[in-house]
Design a protein around this nucleic acid. Structure first.
Lengths: 223, 223
DNA sequence: TCAGATAATGACTGATGGTCAGTCAAGATA
DNA sequence: TATCTTGACTGACCATCAGTCATTATCTGA
């Protein structure tokens, strides 16, 4: 059935065009200031058409966010495929997240909405589930790496991989959130070196997780 | 002029009544679902009257949030006025923040909006400034304590007090955010012990900041 | 060529944040 | 006591915008 397939492709393409237009408008104006009329105009479609592809404005917003998740996932894959020692890979992961933060600030900020369920009024269950699946993929990567570190006796064996992943992630994320909000103030008024702060925080938690043996072995990584 | 003063008091009281009504409605429905008409009805006033006291819905929301800040500040003051050693006081601070998170979840969640400037469409500069003043008060408390710890050689003297405060805070905050969102999932499906996770993360960063001497002296605090 | 299906849309609705001209009562003035 | 002034308060209103639906346009297979 060549026709059915072509139609499928065209529909998918249209979905993509809408997403592209939405991204442009959301990046420019943010969730609340962006209007569906504007996105429709950008996509050269009627507003009603958007609703044939996405159930609500919030769903569309989250769909754009998921593109960001994919960018992040690719960065993470690259960072952990260098063949370096596991500890270095975990360090790379932190650097990759920081890179995502610096280079894709627009995507980074979209998580603000996602992580504030109080603000969700029209998010469909399907979209929420899709977002969680995306999340899981990334968690899986991190947890796998930590498991490896424990198996190699780089990380202590009395820590829980999931708990550890959460701590590592929350530490980096909490700081970057804070940085995003306070960046100019910190840099200019308080003279805080942002890169150094993040690196230091990461060092603190990593060292808490490492075995004494690994601390000696990889001392060079933390100078 | 007794009359002017009485009127002043009455105006202040009305402001408080509006705040009270707003809190009730916002806690029940969240920022987006709550309507100004509903808050007005709860306060037994016309909607227009609300705008004589607060410039916008978002301002009103942040005004409620600031009540939460005050609750938090009081908890912090109590936690650090016990006369215990400085390191214990810093630990207490973390516990106090966790207590705030557990007992005042509604207030805690209001920060989600405050910390996402992308979502601000009608926040007045005055209100923003007031929120920042509130923030500063709390930062001052934390930074002061860290300075004390450095002076007492409990914390290393090569760390910056402000940087350290940021790391401590972001670590706790990032984790609690994550917990807020994932609490049921973590507890039930992943069997993660939330209290223990937070405590462990705090231990990791604290130990990174401490001098070797203090680590020996206060080993008991981390078991 | 035409019937049926699917894609697309413009006009519409309902909800809601915010505004404003006007009311009314308490206090000032005489 | 009668009149004026002030300012707190309000109801009716407006503008905006997410989301809906009846209708139209386009394509396809017979």
């Amino acid at each position: 059935m060549g026709i059915a397939e072509r139609k499928e492709r065209e529909k998918e393409a249209r979905r993509g065009e809408i997403l592209e237009a939405a991204e442009k408008v959301f990046f420019e104006k943010g969730l609340n200031q962006a209007t569906m009329d504007e996105i429709a105009a950008e996509a050269e479609l009627g507003k009603s058409t958007l609703y044939l592809y996405y159930r609500s404005k919030e769903d569309l917003y989250l769909a754009v966010m998921m593109r960001g998740s994919e960018v992040m996932f690719r960065l993470f894959m690259e960072a952990t495929s260098t063949g370096e020692p596991t500890l270095k890979l975990i360090r790379n992961l932190g650097d990759a997240y920081y890179e995502f933060f610096k280079k894709h600030r627009n995507y980074f900020r979209m998580y603000y909405f996602f992580e504030s369920p109080d603000l969700h009024t029209q998010v469909s269950d399907e979209m929420k589930a899709a977002c969680f699946r995306n999340d899981e993929k990334i968690w899986g990567l991190v947890i796998g790496l930590i498991r490896k570190a424990i198996a190699e006796k780089v990380f202590r064996d009395d820590i829980d991989p999931q708990q550890t992943a959460v701590i590592l992630w929350a530490n980096a994320n909490g700081l970057m959130r804070q940085m995003d909000r306070m960046e100019p103030y910190w840099r200019d008024a308080m003279k805080i070196d942002l890169d150094a702060t993040l690196r230091r925080a990461n060092t603190f938690v990593l060292q808490g997780m490492m075995t004494d043996k690994a601390k000696k072995q990889f001392a060079g990584l933390f100078e």
